[in-house]
Amino acid sequence: MLGIIPQLMLLSILAFLIMKVAPGDPVASLVGGREFMTEADYQRVSRNLGLDRPVLVQYGIWFENILNGDWGRSIADGREIRGIVLEGLRVTLVLVGFSWLTITLLAIGAGYWAGTRAHSWPDYVISTLALVSFATPAFWLGLILILIFSVRLEWLPSAGQSTLGREGGLADQAAHLVLPVMTIVLTHVGPCIRLVRGSVRDVLSADFFRAARARGLARTTLILRYLLPNALTPFITWAGFSFPLLVGGIFIVEWVFGWPGIGRLFLQAAISRNYPLLMAVVLVTGVLVIIGNLVADLLVAWLNPKLRRGHGR
């Protein structure tokens, strides 16, 4: 739990270093080049910006500004970085949220279904599809889906999160979500299904499950209190650990589908050398990943009485 504080510190130092080692002189870039300012002006501006202080002090000031909500301005267009990044984060979370929900439902549903029918042909079909899904690159699948559903069939939009001029429409936004969510889900759900299938099988053959059956409990009790909680613990743990993977996948999908989220911001900032923006995006993405892991940890601890008791005392 307390482990996240050093993680956050490390992350912020990393983000700060990106800015420091980035090529280019921030003072000179203010006026378009060193040759446009006198030595005295240069010294003065440097002092005003705090750039003459030791690096450690600069880091402290920068970190304090971040905490105070002053994230600086984008080099490209001078807009407030905080607004840009938080809007990108919101848009990304919509995508992550829907994808994660779909992955979870599919993993539980298909994993349970295949696990209770192990070695029947539906199980083989699901397992094969899961393997294929795992081996498919998101970039490639995204383009294929666009080709089929947008270009050929013209059923679904292929870019952005809404049609220009129709920003408010829920149906329009939902239609824009379909292909990116589908791409993320199809490329990530495979291992999840396999995992749930495996743990469902483990529980079904566990001694405690047989003991519960020997007590004559109702089917729903067996499934809801014995099978699912025990079978889903490994999935939740894994979902937490693989969260960075999901975020990585989202970056690519946002790029392919022009989804104006934090992943696309990252790639744009990197390409245009917009370092203050890049730094903020790295920081926010890192925080997102850390929070994701933390939530998974808490959830697993809450589910597992062994850990729960251990922490309680």
């Binding site: 001694d207 405690f208 209190r225 025990n230 613990t233 589910l303 009485p305």
Partner: peptide, 16 residues
């Protein structure tokens, strides 16, 4: 009723 060999695994590990 039935009781089994391994006593710990007569019970659901997640429930009291």
């Amino acid at each position: 009723g039935m009781i089994f060999q391994s006593p710990e695994s007569s019970f659901n590990p997640l429930a009291t």
